[in-house]
Amino acid sequence: MTQSSPRLVKRQTGDERSSPRSPAAASTFLDRYRNILIPIVALIVLVAYFGAQNPAFISTGSAQNILRQMAFLSILALAGTFVILIGGIDLSVAANASLAGILIAKWIDSLGGPLAIVLVLLVGGFVGLVNGIVTTLLKVPSFLVTLGMMSILDGVSNTISKGGPVSFNSGLLNTLVNTSTIPGLPNGALIAIVLAVGLTALVFATSYGRHLYAVGGNERAARLSGVRVRAVKLSVFALAGVIAAVAGIILTGQASTGVPLGADPSLLNSIAAIVVGGTALSGGVGGPHRTMLGTLVIVILGSGMDITSVGPYTQLIVKGAVVIAAVAITIDRRRYGLIK
């Protein structure tokens, strides 16, 4: 083993049949860490640019604002991350969060806080499970199932709220989301951070987490390695539903009222956060920690544009372009000979 080690490097890289070629050591490094370096560089550039444009950008007030926005968006993006990790996509997370936002406002006074929260999370999980069942058992692509589910959920939300805001009296959500247990950190952001840490641990330090990556990386090989693929997929969709419901509760807590379709406009932003963070749409690469980084980039981009008075229409154009660019940069072309 030891004598042959100088030869060994040559052997591997010389075998073109099974290995994608790496032109030079330096570019191998860039290749390998590209997906993590890009959001970090983007973050530094954005902060430097907006800070130079308007010094008010680097202030505690601005930081508070960013944390508040992050709380909701990062949780919504975490929900979507899991489905993308197994190689699917969940377009219904935002609509699911909207429904949760309406239901919590509707139920919190009559049922009491804890019971209402548990029920709302269960409804979210149930919606996710339905997505999962249709995708895995009926074998309909998740893209289409969740697109349809988005419309169904929007219809249900509007029926329940009768298309108008739903107000409530309980102060529980305000305490839970807007006050600060740790000074300077709104509880909503604290919840997001705790959730992200927990989910990152789930992904990296449990066999369930490894199975997620295996299913996303190569479903057939996962099955032949003893992974219960169907159970993993069903649970991931259900998990995404529960996390989406958490995002909806946070949103209603921040707005102090149930806003109809309140979370829906954030769908694109949440997907942007996921892909900018470096979770590949092809599945098997990325994770919740990446999504936190991606959310930070998207939120800073948004609030930076606000503070430098970029018009809302221009902001839409910029965000759309960022999503496309992020996918273009992060997509693993080795796994796709052709892009359709």
Binding site: S18, T206, S207, R210, H211, Y213, A214, G217, N218, R220, A221, A222, L224, S225, G226, V227, G284, V285, D332, R334, R335
Partner: peptide, 25 residues
């Protein structure tokens, strides 16, 4: 091998340990 056994983007170590994760828990 490529279709049935490998997770090409995952590390060599994860590709090996996927066979006995239950014993590592």
């Amino acid at each position: 091998r490529a279709n049935d056994s490998l997770f090409t983007t995952m590390s060599v170590r994860s590709n090996i340990s996927i066979g006995f994760l239950d014993l590592l828990t």
